[in-house]
């Protein structure tokens, strides 16, 4: 790590970006909430009062206690589920699964979709046509149907869910990066690089890609929220993550049966956590789009 020599007053692109982003209070609040959620998910094992999946810590007699009830060893601020697990702890662990499934699938889809889109835009011709035909075709089916087909074909498990989420998402990235790359490709610096006989791989990844990232970041942020939402939906339907690694969606499903009898909290609080997660990501994504969109820049 070298010490930066830039004077503090200089307006670097990054500084400008931070300032533009901070213009909207709601977006900053969204970012803070999101960071807090990520931290909570990462440090869940250390900060939760209970490990809800360690059977020795759970007393079955504590089943479905209302929020604020005291158990033998602790107070259940958000109540307990039917197994007597502390819901607050359960939510933190659920967040872990939800966020990591969303993040992993988005990163994989971004790499696959981004590379395919770049390759298509750079080489054009048949390769481009084939890649884009497949992407168009896939986008003509609703995400949930694709996910249902894959999950019923592949079976259940976290890895299968991630595959399904990647399959649903890659086409968006391919399309986004292709449209930007097609514009960039015609610019002079790429032509110059081609004239210098720089290898295709180098041109694509060193020259083309950095210029196509901003729109990709925007789409990626929104897609993380979509991925989390879709995973929650599949888990709620009972065809998502396995019960050994419950996500927020699965927690909601578990509480759903008790909702009609009035024990709302078993479903409600995990649902609230899901809502906050999705809304905070969307707030950040919206502002990123406004800041990074060159057409809107003054």
């Amino acid at each position: 790590m070298t010490v930066t020599t830039t004077p503090p007053k200089a307006i670097t692109p990054f500084r400008r970006f931070v300032e533009d982003f901070a213009e909207k209070r709601l977006a900053v609040a969204g970012l803070f909430v999101f960071v807090a959620l990520v931290l909570a998910a990462i440090f869940a094992p250390w900060i939760t009062p209970q490990n809800p999946y360690d059977l020795t810590q759970i007393d079955f007699m504590d089943g479905r206690l209302a929020p604020g009830s005291s158990g033998a060893t602790m107070t259940f601020w958000l109540g307990t589920d039917d197994q007597g697990r502390d819901l607050l702890s359960g939510i933190f662990y659920g967040l872990r699964t939800s966020l990591s499934v969303g993040a992993i699938s988005t990163v994989i889809a971004l790499v696959i979709g981004g590379s395919l889109g770049l390759i298509g835009a750079y080489f054009g011709g048949k390769i481009d046509t084939i890649i884009m035909r497949i992407a168009d075709l896939q986008l003509s089916f609703p995400a949930i149907l694709i996910a249902l087909i894959l999950v019923s074909a592949l079976g259940q498990g976290i890895d299968k869910i991630i595959i399904a989420l990647v399959a649903v998402q890659w086409a968006y990235y391919a399309r986004t990066i292709r449209s930007t790359a097609l514009v960039e490709r015609r610019k002079e610096y790429i032509e110059a690089a081609t004239c210098l006989a720089i290898s295709h791989r180098r041109i694509v990844f060193k020259h083309l890609m950095p210029n196509c990232t901003p729109p990709l970041i925007v789409v990626g942020t929104v897609q993380v929220a979509h991925a989390i939402s879709l995973e929650a939906t599949l888990s709620f339907l009972g065809i998502g993550v396995p019960i050994t690694e419950p996500s927020l969606g699965l927690l909601i499903k578990n509480g759903f049966d008790y909702m009609l009898s009035g024990d709302y909290w078993v479903s409600f609080y995990p649902g609230l956590a899901l809502l906050i997660t999705i809304v905070s990501i969307n707030l950040v994504g919206d502002q990123l789009r406004d800041v990074l969109n060159p057409r809107l820049q003054k």
Binding site: A225, S229, L230, A232, T233, F236, L237, G249, I252, F256, M259, S267, F268, G271, L274, L275, I278, V279, N282
Partner: peptide, 10 residues
Amino acid sequence: SLPTFWVGLI
């Protein structure tokens, strides 16, 4: 942005 099942629950 809200999942359909979540709204149904509410």
